[in-house]
Design a protein around this nucleic acid. Structure first.
Lengths: 203, 203
DNA sequence: ATAGAAAACGGACCATGGTCCGTTTCGTCC
DNA sequence: GGACGAAACGGACCATGGTCCGTTTTCTAT
């Protein structure tokens, strides 16, 4: 029988060859280890290739660029946080009223972003934008805003709420301006309150 | 007389040697030309050095890095816009009521940022942050907010209003999400209205 | 004008991200 | 199991940003 695809199931992207999958995994492990040990900056692609026992070309075929590789590492690091967001205890996880969830989200996201700051920077555009991670976060904020009865262009309002949490802006506020973290967080809550408007609880 | 500094006037940074000044100017001219002709991406530091008729080391001593050089070019490009902001006709320039000035600022800044997008990206941290250009913009927004009677942490609110105008966020909205420019601008005005609150004119 | 120190110069050199292409491995079909 | 095409491999190679250090220019003081 030449038609092996009996059931046209989910026609996703073509499957990965076994050696390819093995190398991807080896590279991710090696990259995580090196990043943890030496810091993102000090990790070279040659080093990752060597540590994984593959050629340099393979690294780039799998991950396109250093940004791509770092984005993959970052994605792994953020998984635990995403789990807490979706299934963890309130107020970050489901169960608390939306405003409390939003405030908890703000603080938690701020801390997580700072924790992974180097990785996020190194992942560049491949990291924040377009990755599943970002979509999830944006969707979550849109959902909370809707839940709070906010009217208007929700996708844009969500973006406006997320923009001040981006690394370049945080760097500016914390390092250039010298604002303490608590002030930045308080500012974010204030912004959220103004965006949410009447639907926010009285202070 | 060994004390040449008769009048201690403005003790600014030590003056620049004549050859240094000449080379800085030559480099800026060369860089501007090459950037305009070939686009930021295609311009190499070697090419700039050659075009300016100086050694490569000189380029890096003057501007630290490619980012630094691009920041300098950008600064020059933004000068005209700054002049319009400070001294041009209303509603962008002085003379119009603060809310009208704020809205005009939003549109104009959005357009200018997109116009210089490549340069801003290439200037990286050296470009937006810390440069005089950014300080001026932030100060202007703080001023308008104060003028509108906004209460709260003005520096943070100004940041919140500027953050969605940063290149990474705009890229996301225009390219990934595919929003048209007008929608983005409308969203920004809406955000501004929510931040300003009661002090904004009724729609 | 001259000497001497400080600053700037220039281009060979280095590090590293990314590409290319001849060779090897994998999966499939008979 | 063997043959064959497709995909993956690996490491030499390239491009380019950035550094280093011996040489040259500028500035100041006498």
């Amino acid at each position: 029988m030449s038609e092996h695809q009996l059931l046209p199931l989910l026609t996703g992207p073509p499957p990965e060859r076994r050696d390819a999958a093995r190398n991807r995994e080896a590279l991710l492990v090696a990259a995580r280890e090196l990043v943890e040990r030496d810091g993102v900056q000090a990790v070279t692609m040659d080093a990752v290739a060597a540590a994984a026992g593959v050629g340099k070309g393979t690294v780039f075929r799998r991950f396109r660029s250093k940004e791509g590789l770092m984005a993959a590492v970052l994605d792994h690091s953020e998984t635990e946080w995403q789990r807490l967001l979706l299934f963890g205890p309130p107020p970050l996880g489901p169960g608390a009223p939306p405003w409390e969830r939003l405030v908890a989200f703000g603080r938690s996201r701020l801390e997580t972003t700072l924790l992974h700051a180097d990785l996020i920077r190194a992942a560049g555009a491949a990291g924040t934008r377009s990755s599943a991670a970002y979509s999830l976060v944006a969707m979550h904020v849109r959902y909370l805003l809707a839940e709070l009865g906010v009217t208007g262009d929700l996708p844009l309002l969500a973006t406006a709420l997320l923009a001040p949490m981006e690394i370049p802006i945080l760097d500016q506020q914390l390092h250039n301006d010298g604002f303490p973290i608590d002030r930045v967080h308080a500012g974010w809550v204030d912004l959220a309150r103004r965006i949410v408007g009447d639907a926010a609880p009285p202070r």
